[in-house]
Amino acid sequence: MTITLVPYHLDERLPDSSFPLPAAGFIPVTRELPEGDVWARLGALYELVSAEVADQVAGGTRPTVVSGDCLVSTAVLAGVQRAGVDASVVWFDGHGDIHSLESSTSGYIGGMPLRQIIGDHPELLTGPLGLRPLPEERAVLVDARDLDPAEAEFLATSKIRRCPVDDVVLPDGPLVLHIDLDVIDKGDLPGLRFPVGGGPSRDAVLASYRRVMATGRVAALDLACPWHLPEGDDTAIRTRLLAEILDEIQGA
């Protein structure tokens, strides 16, 4: 098993120690980011991620990408498509990640990736990456419960399917499985940047993840670890969680 580590939260370089991964077996993707706005900087970084994913898929390997945010998912899907695989998206997240530039009141671009994957503002990121917009009905949003009003309004008329972790309805064909670990209830996973309560337990999320993996249809896994730098007991909790997820991949 090879893990592609993208040690960033958006364009902020994080120390590798933020990601308690095995000492060997991962490939870090980093680069000196160019001058310019955040979209140009991320586009330069994500081109490397997309190329790495495409090479792995073309070589018969299922990529596993670990990063500090959800926006990297655009590069993962673009790489899978570049390798000739027409994948749908299953999106585990405590948030909707379905904002547009116009709807976001905070301007936080980490809350926009799913909206961009289905075609919003392609000139910013997905277009330069060569990502073909995903039809809404081929996206499944799992246990997103912390929605801003504009997100809830959009989803009310969208064809994106929504479901809880205990009853994930999968689209046909290959899948890109995106798991933002903040889908886990904040009581079970401390230290998150954007914690959400009222959600599924760690064990429930792991069980749901295993059911999706057991289909044999996951073309790539994108794992977002949006937490602060590990300190004290939090590190042990995160290490155990990542080990369980990655051990499952290794055995699949």
Score class of each variant (00 low, 15 high):
42 L>K: 04
152 A>M: 08
104 S>C: 07
109 I>G: 11
141 L>H: 07
110 G>E: 10
153 E>T: 13
212 V>K: 11
30 T>I: 04
217 R>Y: 07
204 A>Y: 02
113 P>F: 00
227 W>V: 05
96 G>Q: 04
116 Q>L: 15
170 L>K: 03
25 G>C: 06
5 L>S: 13
154 F>Y: 11
111 G>N: 05
31 R>C: 14
124 L>E: 11
27 I>E: 14
101 L>P: 08
203 D>N: 11
124 L>Y: 12
251 G>N: 09
209 Y>C: 06
51 A>R: 14
200 P>S: 14
77 L>Q: 13
208 S>Q: 13
8 Y>R: 12
170 L>M: 03
218 V>A: 10
88 S>P: 04
108 Y>S: 02
173 G>S: 07
236 A>Y: 05
198 G>A: 02
28 P>L: 05
135 P>F: 03
11 D>W: 06
158 S>K: 00
65 V>Y: 01
200 P>Q: 06
51 A>F: 02
223 L>V: 08
139 A>W: 01
94 G>C: 06
210 R>K: 15
187 G>T: 03
89 V>M: 07
80 V>T: 09
18 S>R: 15
6 V>Q: 09
215 T>A: 12
95 H>I: 11
173 G>Q: 07
132 R>L: 13
137 E>F: 00
235 T>E: 15
206 L>P: 07
122 P>E: 04
3 I>S: 09
221 L>F: 14
121 H>M: 09
31 R>N: 09
214 A>T: 10
241 L>G: 07
111 G>W: 01
84 G>W: 04
123 E>A: 08
50 S>P: 07
122 P>S: 03
208 S>N: 13
80 V>Y: 03
222 D>M: 06
200 P>R: 05
224 A>L: 01
169 V>S: 05
71 L>F: 11
64 T>P: 01
229 L>R: 15
14 L>E: 10
219 A>K: 05
203 D>Y: 05
221 L>T: 15
66 V>P: 08
56 Q>G: 08
185 D>M: 06
179 I>A: 14
1 M>C: 13
107 G>R: 01
125 L>S: 05
249 I>P: 00
131 L>W: 10
7 P>C: 02
147 L>G: 04
240 R>G: 15
26 F>A: 13
91 W>Y: 06
30 T>Q: 13
112 M>R: 05
6 V>H: 07
63 P>V: 00
188 D>V: 00
186 K>L: 13
213 M>E: 14
168 V>N: 00
181 L>I: 08
245 I>N: 09
65 V>F: 01
48 L>F: 10
14 L>A: 08
180 D>M: 03
54 A>G: 03
124 L>V: 04
86 D>W: 08
209 Y>N: 08
149 P>E: 06
174 P>Y: 05
8 Y>Q: 12
18 S>K: 14
